Amino acid sequence: MHCPNCKNKNLGKIGVNQFYCWDCFIELTLTNGRLSLNQVEEDGSLTTLDDLFEDQELNLG
């Protein structure tokens, strides 16, 4: 699997179906064959980045 944002494979697993891209610093969650991307803010909250990508980029199935 590669990051849909930076296209690199430098992903670390942080939980069940949750990954973190060490190159562009976003969190990826895999649910039912679809990725959801979030930016981790300074206070620890998450901001969705899904609206920046086409559906075909987020679907893995």
Rank of each mutant, 00 (worst) to 15 (best):
1 M>H: 03
2 H>A: 12
3 C>P: 08
4 P>H: 09
5 N>L: 07
5 N>S: 07
6 C>F: 07
8 N>A: 15
9 K>H: 10
9 K>M: 05
9 K>R: 11
9 K>F: 06
9 K>Y: 13
10 N>L: 08
10 N>I: 06
11 L>S: 10
12 G>V: 12
12 G>S: 12
12 G>L: 09
13 K>G: 06
14 I>D: 04
14 I>K: 02
14 I>F: 04
15 G>Q: 07
15 G>R: 10
16 V>W: 15
17 N>F: 07
17 N>K: 07
17 N>I: 02
18 Q>K: 10
19 F>S: 14
19 F>M: 13
22 W>Q: 14
23 D>L: 00
23 D>A: 00
23 D>R: 02
24 C>Y: 07
24 C>E: 00
26 I>W: 05
27 E>Y: 01
27 E>P: 02
28 L>D: 04
29 T>H: 06
29 T>G: 03
29 T>D: 03
30 L>M: 13
30 L>K: 10
31 T>D: 05
33 G>Q: 08
33 G>M: 10
34 R>E: 11
34 R>L: 05
35 L>F: 15
36 S>E: 05
36 S>M: 04
37 L>V: 12
37 L>R: 04
38 N>D: 06
39 Q>P: 04
40 V>W: 03
42 E>D: 04
42 E>M: 06
42 E>A: 14
43 D>L: 00
43 D>A: 06
43 D>F: 07
45 S>L: 14
48 T>M: 01
49 L>M: 04
49 L>S: 02
49 L>F: 01
51 D>R: 05
51 D>M: 10
52 L>G: 09
53 F>H: 14
53 F>A: 13
54 E>W: 11
54 E>I: 09
55 D>S: 12
55 D>V: 08
56 Q>V: 09
56 Q>M: 07
57 E>C: 00
57 E>G: 03
57 E>S: 07
58 L>W: 00
59 N>C: 12
59 N>V: 14
60 L>P: 01
60 L>N: 03
61 G>R: 12
